[in-house]
């Protein structure tokens, strides 16, 4: 999910890039408990009636479900902030809050979007003078293209 925040007062453009998420981990856990209850209860009941092999399959499946949600939630905490002003292009990224920062001169900044091949998705790198930061690795190819175009056009205008 790419959020564009124009900041005309400070002559800046800001993009906040996050994976699309509409659920907090607490809410996710609530749903997971509800969804997990029936297969596990069913498996336990069948175990009680002498049918032992339902519970292991239910366990594997519930484990997969929790793993999938956990993975989605974990990747959902990533955030990238791109701030472009006539003086600087600041790239920040991290989990929950920004932990890495790269400041560039917009006049020299390059946006590189490489095509994906088979399983490998496309990748977007922004940088100059040998210092690059990969952005939007959690986005879909289409979102990455959208972000690349937005950055390219904004950089063109700022020059």
């Amino acid at each position: 999910m790419i959020e564009t925040r124009p900041d005309p007062e400070n002559d800046r453009h800001i993009w906040v890039v996050r994976p699309t998420r509409s659920l907090t981990w607490a809410e996710a856990k609530r749903w997971l408990y509800i969804i997990s209850t029936v297969p596990l209860a069913g498996g336990t009941l069948f175990l009680f009636f002498g049918v032992p092999l339902v519970l292991p399959f239910a366990g594997i499946e519930v484990g997969l479900l929790w793993a999938a949600f956990y993975y989605v939630q974990l990747t959902g905490q990533r955030v990238e902030i791109i701030a472009l002003s006539p003086q600087s292009l600041i790239l920040e990224r991290g989990r929950k809050a920004a932990t890495e920062r790269l400041e560039l001169d917009p006049a020299w900044a390059r946006v590189e979007l490489s095509d994906g091949r088979g399983w490998q998705p496309s990748s977007l790198r922004v940088g100059s003078h040998g210092r690059f930061m990969e952005l939007g690795s959690f986005l879909t190819d289409g979102e990455r293209q959208f972000l690349a175009n937005a950055l390219i056009n904004a950089l063109k205008k700022s020059r």
Partner: peptide
């Protein structure tokens, strides 16, 4: 393929594999 900022158009076509590879590896 790389695309540099200074030579880029705003209209991007969707890039994806073609032929059988597209269907075997697609995540779309």
């Amino acid at each position: 393929m790389s695309q540099a900022a200074t030579h880029h158009d705003t209209h991007h076509e969707a890039h994806h594999a073609t032929g059988i590879t597209r269907w075997l590896t697609t995540t779309n």
